[in-house]
Nucleic acid binder design. Structure first.
Lengths: 288, 288
DNA sequence: ACACGTTACGGCAACCGTAAGGATT
DNA sequence: AATCCTTACGGTTGCCGTAACGTGT
């Protein structure tokens, strides 16, 4: 049977790129790290770390192990909180976690006082999907969910999406833009795996295929910066640009004749007990 | 640091509702289970199992731990497959892959949860032979194997072969046909390289040479369609025509005085590790 | 008395830190 | 020589199976 302290040693070596530093971080002797690694490698039947004088690097197989290893450690670390039931971890995709979640968390904390210790994990939508599946988080607020077995997904919010342009853009003074005009402009893409292209197909049908994504900058903050700099236009959460639109740093437009909004889901395990704190959070979301 | 074998013991007790049965399942002594549980409970600072004379049940905290514990075990079990990077790929000749394999795959998936990523490759018998030799597939289910070096072939199934005719055929009402009558009719041939002609020689000896193959249509689905259309008779897997015979679309006959059945083999590399997921699949096939 | 879990004990393997060894620059 | 990992060694720990011991039916 695999041993978590071996996994911990492996991750320490990966992070510090050295056995000695890994030992320091773990607070143990360096030969112990060597031994743990060797055992793990024998158990798995592969070399995980390429030892090098300058820096020890994971092998190809080691790289494949890393995400699984981190997941194991995070899940194991949660065991204490889970049995106590007093601490819950909420996962959220970047956009949701950044622009929508904070007020809910504040409200929940006020409701429950400090009876419940609340933690958030914000990451990309695909990472959060894995995190809820492996129980690293108790529930997840997501932009897109792929119906994995054993989980419930409920729609809890419908977020309006806005086309944004810089104040120098020809459309800056307009309130809306025609579909065909929109398609002519290349768009700046944000976070991957959030289902935005699926949403566009849903709204515009086949003609959505005409949309060109000129750049993909990975995060909404980066999208906003790129649009402000006049690099192009984009489509983002209304909540994400509320501030900039009010202060005139960005201009938000709708698409004439279309209502573009994204359904947001809360996802949790089917077997989440109804009296768990996490379940109360879900009810708060879905009701109000 | 949490220990996975403690978690394993916990889950075993939860599943079997008893320390003794848990020990049996884990293949260890019962006091060991007690000890593991006590350690886990001390580590988490709570009682996880309510010991009872009749059945041991998880406490409220224990219940909360269950999903996380199962997740940990599943993830840990995946480690080996993940580093290997090889999801299991099962090769199968068309007939086997189409008519026999699916229930086995379903059963294996249930056994192993989603811990193993299973893929199938269905192609002609010769193609599958090459695929297993070049390690494109981890194991192959075949109708015929030419004893290439470095591989093990085990018989895992004996499939009954039926003569099939259309419901309009003079033999339609009969349950069996004489050998000599069979030889008079030209047969429709199916997939090449499946060893059917060798099988016929084995069953009928030299007289099998009298068999004439009037058409060769390449696949069993095509054979069935041709026979239904009254183009001739054929000899196919009983499993392949079960449905049609039940519904009267085809009639199946045996050959009087002969038992025609084809041995099916599972083929895999000699050096396939005994603990590889693919090897477990082989064991499942050969045992049950 | 029986069924089931806990406690006690002892042998043995595994762990882990110190110290020495190797390899590479 | 210096650095970094591996190997060697020995004391200690703790694991685990057998056996004895509660405890409730």
């Amino acid at each position: 049977m695999l041993n978590l302290s071996q996994i911990e040693a492996f991750i320490a070596v990966v992070d510090t790129r050295g056995f000695h530093d890994a030992a320091t971080r773990l607070g143990c002797s360096q030969p112990k790290v060597s031994q743990q690694l060797r055992k793990l490698e024998r158990a798995l039947g592969v070399t995980l770390i390429h030892r090098d004088r300058l820096q020890s690097m994971p092998t190809e197989q080691g790289v494949r192990l890393i995400p699984l290893a981190r997941s194991l450690l995070r899940t194991a670390a949660r065991a204490k909180d889970v049995v106590s039931g007093h601490k819950i971890v909420i996962g959220a995709s970047s956009n949701i976690g950044t622009y929508l979640l904070p007020p809910y968390v504040a409200r929940f904390s006020r409701m429950r006082g400090n009876a419940v210790d609340l933690d958030m994990r914000i990451a990309g939508n695909p990472e959060i999907a894995d995190a809820v599946e492996s129980r690293e988080v108790d529930l997840a607020l997501m932009e897109w969910w792929d119906n994995r077995r054993g989980f419930v997904a409920k729609r809890w919010h419908q977020e309006k999406m806005l086309v944004i342009v810089s104040p120098d853009h020809p459309w800056a003074k307009r309130r809306s833009v025609d579909r065909d005009q929109l398609f002519e402009q290349p768009m700046i893409g944000g976070e991957a795996g959030t289902g935005t292209s699926a949403l566009l197909r849903q709204v515009f049908g086949k003609s959505a295929l005409k949309i060109r994504v000129g750049m993909n900058v990975g995060s909404t903050e980066a999208v906003k910066a790129a649009v402000k700099a006049g690099l192009g236009i984009s489509l983002v959460f209304a909540s994400a640009v509320e501030e900039e639109i009010r202060s005139g740093l960005l201009c938000g437009l709708s698409v004439a004749g279309f209502k573009i909004s994204k359904d947001l889901f809360v996802v949790f395990p089917e077997d989440l007990p109804a009296d768990a704190a996490a379940h109360q959070f879900v009810r708060m979301l879905v009701k109000g």
